[in-house]
Design a binder for these strands. Structure first.
Lengths: 280, 280
DNA sequence: GTGGCACGCATACGACGTACTCATCTTGTC
DNA sequence: GACAAGATGAGTACGTCGTATGCGTGCCAC
């Protein structure tokens, strides 16, 4: 089924028992948190228990190992073979628990989204709450640079933890009188700003790993080439920039700057939206 | 040199003639445009001439073929073997012109950045110009979804076309009295917003290619799972959203929305920055 | 006991990037 | 015109990857 043109990219296997085991375990991870628990607030998935010291394989152990490996070596340092050997298992043993690499990555994504457990500040305004969510996401990408690469590749996974996050962000704007669609637009606009900023962060981290050169070393390497182009005089703005200071310098400060600009703009919008024809 | 831990990812080869040929051709593409031409304004790279009908390989032909292939099949449908056969050449022949796949991708990135040739509207305000640049970038990612995946992986390449774009964006704010660093921050903040939004766009396109399911089909597939989670009652905001309308719906409209919010925020900032202590 | 089955793994296949090596073709020199 | 030297192209091979297939092993219901 699904044709797989030219024989490439077959991806998901269809061995019955494998898929069954995966679905069973995935459900075990998902449903108890999302469905049955009568928790007072939104309850993220328990994720991984204190890491059962057992030796047996499990979806949790596999996902945890894969996350550790991706954190350490990037998304293309992640291979089923190496995850397996890291767990002291045969490569194909993983496929009893996970249908394939893609599904494993999906599980990884939802798992890291459930990491930061502490609740947002209560009774804060929408602006504080949105900023809180944005910073939370920013930290997520700092810790797990590979996460952003998955975003660019796969449709946003609707794991319970991801949904929880979105819900929380939208709740930040509850009571403002915005239409649900607009609330959603705002939420993903903030998320987009964070992700866009994180692209810069991640590309530096990732490239540093790949080449072994730090950002400063890299800049020194490229300097002659850049200066050559600059010296043509066709880039006056960039020239001035280089003369004063040479780069983003503090990427966290820049992130805060851009986030604040977006929040300012949202404030203008909220203001004009919530009391339509008063001042005018 | 460079150690290559555990024997993985050797990447760039170092055969002298290969590197030489590459540098020579890359320079041929870069310098005549950036250095010698006495053009009135910023002049992007001539890129590829009317595609010489010749049969011989060339960097341009290789880059063009690779771009076409990535456009059609995504970044991981791109392989040196298939680019070569598409050009009617042996695989290793490409390595006479390009040191490796990474360098090829770098050339591809700069090439597509030089695509849209028409000048921005003259004498427009900073806001119009920034919006213009943002839309231009947005269209770029629509046409070449793979571009965003490279951004997440490699340090932003400083090809002449990319630099031209950045310079132009910064020139949009010339005369506002902002410090060069701030101008730069604003420019990359807008770019970050576009890229973050494009992540959503690209993930849909990419996933659609990978699975063969359109967005609507996919939503129909996932609906039972989503509704199951929604029906727990723990996601009131999302529930309301689904009841009214089920998704982003018009991603271009959303892009415009988020861009306008950011520009509004930048306007507030520019306003407060350019005439510091007058009204207050 | 003894099937059946859940589980783990060894082997194998076809893709990939690219290093090494040889063949062919072009060009400069006499 | 003959011929050496370099430029250019490609065939083969190595090590990596994801994963399909099929074979053992041990547990458990009957």
């Amino acid at each position: 089924m699904e044709a797989a043109p030219r024989g490439r990219r077959p991806r998901y296997c269809s061995r019955s028992c494998q898929a069954r085991a995966y679905r069973a375990r995935a459900a075990a991870r998902t449903e108890p948190a999302g469905v049955s628990r009568p928790s007072p607030a939104i309850a993220p998935v328990p994720d991984e228990a204190p890491q059962p010291p057992a030796e047996g394989l499990s979806v949790q152990r596999i996902v945890a190992a894969a996350i550790a490996m991706a954190d350490a070596e990037g998304l293309d340092g992640l291979s089923m073979r190496r995850v397996a050997t890291r767990l002291g298992a045969g490569t194909m043993s993983l496929y009893r628990y996970v249908p394939g690499k893609d599904a494993l990555i999906e599980l990884m994504v939802d798992a890291v989204h459930g990491e930061e457990r502490q609740a947002p500040p209560a009774d804060a305004g929408w602006r504080v709450l949105l900023r809180y969510a944005a910073r939370r996401e920013w930290r997520l990408y700092s810790r797990h640079p590979w996460l952003l690469q998955t975003v660019a590749t796969t449709r946003p996974p609707f794991g319970p933890n991801v949904l929880t996050e979105l819900e929380r962000t939208m709740q930040a704007m509850d009571g403002l009188g915005l239409a649900p669609v607009i609330t959603h637009w705002v939420a993903i606009a903030v998320s987009a700003q964070v992700q866009g900023a994180a692209l810069l962060l991640v590309s530096e981290v990732e490239e540093e790993r790949r080449t072994g050169r730090t950002t400063l070393q890299w800049r020194a390497d490229k300097m002659p080439a850049i200066r050559e182009i600059i010296d043509t005089g066709q880039f006056p703005m960039l020239t001035r920039l280089l003369e004063e200071q040479d780069d983003v310098a503090d990427i966290d400060a820049w992130f805060e700057f851009s986030l604040n600009r977006l929040l300012d703009g949202l404030a203008v919008f909220v203001e004009s939206e919530t009391r339509p024809p008063r001042t005018l």
